[in-house]
């Protein structure tokens, strides 16, 4: 499996005494994966994406498709597409002109494909972006990007401010009409529940460090959630849970790497939702964080 992104010990400080946006983040992204980069506000998600896209300089080793993104951004962008969020298409441009432009500057853009995607929407060629609704702008941007035969697609909060119908359509279109074994998608979003089912891998980032780096199908083998009554609470705490929360008078414990046999004794256990796992990992004391795997 070829590696698309290799990041080693990325560091980025804003200002001389400013906060560390990236504090030694290391990760690898392989081809043909859909990776969710998930972290709270200010965790360094956007800085990491900007570094990958060559939009900001960082310390450390960074390799994207065999290139150093800090040099020759324009060459990298022949292989990499990105959507920053829905509000970045220039408002004065007409849909037709946007297609003309991308066609003129991008060697891997297929106008026919783009027009086919747009034909399914209400987006008309003569309209200006400022005349489109937010959802239609997202459809246009997605159509432009999906018509580019890129190897890596980076999405930074691509559905921010869209209603649920557009959000569903957005990810559905990506999965059905774009994603294949040759392509890799790296996505950040706050709406974890909505992308959970399409991710193949997940990266949790906290205070500029990667605190979880795991394939989705390994999550179930490592993390487990058990709901126990007040009687078994002490026994559960003895197993060293990651977190505890209360639901209808019972305690829900989240375990990392606990023995399945001992969990079975407590009650029925299941794979935690990504959002619950995220909350648990982000609320752990800082010292316990940092060591993935």
């Amino acid at each position: 499996m070829s590696v698309v992104i290799t990041a080693e010990n990325l560091r980025k400080q804003y200002g001389r005494k400013g906060t560390l946006a990236l504090d030694g983040a290391s990760f690898r992204v392989e081809a043909g994966r859909i990776v969710g980069l998930i972290g709270p506000n200010g965790a360094g998600k956007t800085t990491a994406l900007k570094a990958i896209l060559g939009l900001t300089d960082v310390d450390g080793r960074l390799d994207v498709l065999g290139m150093d993104p800090r040099r020759r951004r324009e060459r990298l962008m022949e292989q990499v597409s990105f959507i920053a969020d829905v509000a970045v298409l220039p408002r004065w441009i007409r849909v037709r002109e946007a297609l003309d432009y991308v066609e003129g500057v991008h060697p891997r853009f297929s106008r026919a494909t783009c027009e086919r995607f747009l034909a399914r929407t209400e987006v008309k060629p003569a309209l200006r972006v400022r005349e489109l609704s937010k959802g239609m702008i997202a459809q246009l941007h997605l159509a432009l990007v999906m018509a580019i035969d890129a190897r890596l697609l980076v999405l930074d909060e691509p559905t921010l401010g869209l209603d649920i119908l557009y959000r569903k359509q957005f990810y559905q279109a990506l999965l059905e009409d774009y994603f294949d074994a040759e392509k890799t998608i790296l996505v950040t979003t706050h709406q974890v529940e909505e992308i959970e089912h399409i991710l193949t891998d997940v990266l949790f980032i906290r205070h500029g460090r990667i605190v979880l780096d795991s394939p989705m199908d390994a999550i179930g083998g490592r993390f487990a959630e058990v709901m126990v009554g007040p009687g078994e609470r002490e026994a559960a705490l003895a197993l060293g849970p990651l977190s505890e929360r209360q639901v209808f008078g019972k305690s829900v414990f989240l375990f990392d790497g606990a023995d399945p046999a001992r969990l079975a004794a407590l009650g029925e256990h299941r794979q935690p939702a990504l959002a619950d796992l995220f909350v648990a990992m982000m609320q752990r004391p800082e010292t316990a964080a940092g060591a993935p795997r």
Binding site: R72, I83, A84, V88, V105
Partner: peptide
């Protein structure tokens, strides 16, 4: 203007150098 309306992020997502 491209910085003010953030469209610079769109222009920069395409293979065009800053010099060009």
């Amino acid at each position: 203007d491209e910085r003010r309306d953030r469209s610079v992020l769109f222009w920069k997502s395409l293979p065009v150098s800053d010099a060009k």
